[in-house]
Structures are given as C-alpha cells and as structure tokens.
C-alpha cells in the first residue's frame, strides 16, 4: 500500500529479518548471560583458591580426584568444537540439512560428556560433606554440570526445531548462538579440569 505523505520519512521496509551476530539481539543476550555465568565461575574459582590458602595440605587428608576420567572428558570437550563450528558455518549459509546433522552430532557429544561427568563425580574420591575442600570440588563440578546439562537440553530443542514444521529463518541465528554457548561450556570445562585435576596434585 502506498502512502501519500508530505513528512520526510526513513523507509525501512527493505531491511532484513534474518541476521546473524552483532545485528541480532539474541547474540547479545547470549553474550550477556555468558558474562553472568563467567562471573559466577570466576567467583567460585576465587573461593576455591581462597580456601586453599586456609589449609596447609591440599587436598586436606584426602586423595586427589581420579585423573583419567577428567582427561578423557577434556579431550572429548575439545573435539566437540568441530560439530559446534560446523553448525555455525552451515547455519549462516542457510543449510538446514547440514545444520541438523551438526546439531545431532553436538547432542551426541553432550550426552557422552554427561555420562563421563557421572564417572568424574565418582572419581572425586570424597563426599561433599567431608570437609570444605570436598564441598568446593563438588560445587565446581555441580556448577559446570548444570551448564552442560542446560546446554545439552538447548541443543535438543534446536534439533527439535530443525526437524519440525515450525522451522523458519530466524532459527538459523539461534543455532549459530547455541554453538557460542557450547564454546563457553567447553572453555570453562578445560579451565575447571586444570584446577580440579592439576591444582589438587601440584599445589
């Protein structure tokens, strides 16, 4: 419909509705939630090292966590970056089949990481109520597992979108952003495992 008007106008009718990265508010919202969660991780690590300074022995009177589950999961996390990146490239090209394959791959990685995480809990060699050290390592692992679990569920929701009749253009930026959050989970997994398995042996 054409409008006749004598006020000068800025016509925005031709602007796109499917945009990636900086132009998309979802990208910013996701980034800010990562900042919040990052601050939370930073605080819990600061608390861990603070409690370390209150004790002469570390771990105090307990064996350090079993190493190899942690190593296995770290390698797995690092490898999972491959499907995460492929989702981003496929999504930005508007390739639905490619995005779906990547999302299913990422969900599979998430599931295996969660299973190994279960063994990591078993391999902590202490209960959360043993002492402050025990509380702290459990807190680290629970906090990260919470993130892993929510990210895994989010990936499953993305799989559901990609394979349903409700798929639309604006979901592609969602896939793209989902991978950003996955990188965040991987990054903190690596840092956490260095702290959990490294500092309990070296400090």
């Amino acid at each position: 419909m054409e409008r006749t008007t004598d006020i000068p106008v800025l016509d925005v009718s031709g602007l796109p509705t499917v945009v990636f990265r900086e132009p998309n508010p979802i990208f910013w919202g996701n980034l800010l939630y990562m900042l919040i969660e990052g601050a939370m991780f930073a605080m819990i690590f600061a608390s861990y090292f603070y409690l370390r300074t209150r004790s002469t022995e570390w771990p105090p009177g307990l064996a350090p966590p079993y190493l190899w589950y942690g190593v296995a999961n770290t390698i797995l996390f690092l490898t999972s970056v491959v499907p995460a990146r492929s989702i981003q490239l496929r999504a930005r090209a508007g390739d639905l089949a490619g995005s779906l394959t990547g999302l299913i791959g990422l969900a599979a990685f998430g599931l295996i990481c969660l299973v190994i995480r279960g063994f990591e809990f078993k391999g902590l060699n202490c209960r959360w109520d043993a002492n402050a050290y025990g509380s702290m390592v459990w807190a680290l692992l629970v906090l990260h597992t919470g993130h892993l679990l929510t990210e895994w569920i989010e990936t499953l929701v993305m799989v559901a979108f990609a394979s349903s009749r409700k798929m639309e253009g604006k979901r592609f930026p969602d896939f793209d952003v989902n991978s950003d959050y996955w990188y965040f989970v991987v990054g903190w997994a690596v840092i956490m495992n260095i702290v959990l398995y490294g500092t309990t042996r070296l400090l």
């Binding site: 409690l51 209150r54 109520d129 043993a130 002492n131 402050a132 509380s135």
Partner: peptide
C-alpha cells in the same frame, strides 16, 4: 552439610 563457612572443617 557442606562446609564452605565452617572453620572446623577447613571452611572460612
């Protein structure tokens, strides 16, 4: 029963 702030169990 965690001990983050319990000095008796290494908390602070």
């Amino acid at each position: 029963n965690t001990h983050f702030f319990n000095p008796a169990e290494g908390g602070d």
